[in-house]
């Protein structure tokens, strides 16, 4: 189609404006729907941590990672690093409020747990914290969803959601995939 006159040009412009408006509206509606119905929202936790010494001290040292029951609180600590999660499998009970805490020593990563509302970026220098309730049992896939380097596509972990009565922490309050 050739645009010969001012009118033709105007018509084409309006068509494209309408198309772009429709696409943007559809995307915004999808975001609004996800926010209202699936309760997907950006985590509100702002907590800083030094990425250079993450492995040396405190909460995110290697021995302290994984799921741990502390009183009534169930928390899993996970480190996302190039190009693996540590630990690569975490156990979570179904139908209980659980907390997932993530940190990274290197670059920006991101995670989602398939079929749930868990979705967050993991940014060097910050702890990403998500509270959720898992309702489906089984092995859920948790891939890295933010390109983090050449090994990004092989970077994934498993969230093993077990029925509440099968969720049995050891004497130190820890639960691992190996022990089951």
């Amino acid at each position: 189609m050739r645009a010969d006159t001012e009118q033709d040009i105007l018509k084409t412009e309006l068509w494209w404006t309408a198309l772009v408006t429709a696409v943007v509206t559809a995307i915004m509606l999808a975001i609004i729907y996800a926010g209202l119905v699936h309760h997907i929202n950006p985590p509100s936790n702002i907590e800083t941590v030094d990425p250079k010494t993450l492995h040396l001290t405190g909460e995110f040292t290697e021995g302290n990672l994984g799921t741990r029951v502390d009183g009534s609180q169930i928390t899993s600590r996970i480190v996302a690093t190039q190009f693996a999660f540590q630990p690569q499998c975490i156990v979570m009970p179904a139908n209980r409020t659980v907390t997932l805490r993530f940190a990274t020593p290197d670059v920006i990563h991101g995670i989602l747990v398939t079929g749930t509302n868990v979705n967050t970026m993991i940014i060097p220098g910050y702890v990403s914290q998500v509270h959720t309730v898992f309702t489906k049992t089984g092995d859920l896939l948790m891939p890295c969803h933010e390109f983090c380097g050449l090994g990004h596509s092989q970077m994934w972990a498993t969230v093993r959601v077990v029925p509440e009565d099968e969720f049995k922490p050891g004497p130190d309050g820890r639960v691992t995939c190996d022990a089951r």
Binding site: P43, S44, N45, I46, E47, H55, L56, T57, G58, E59, T61, E62, G63, N64, D70, G71, Q73, T75, T97, T99, R101, Q129, H131
Partner: peptide, 16 residues
């Protein structure tokens, strides 16, 4: 905004 559920301070021993 946070934390909505307070975290206990970690008494975990560092195992670098």
């Amino acid at each position: 905004g946070s934390p909505a559920v307070r975290q206990p301070t970690s008494e975990a021993k560092a195992q670098p």
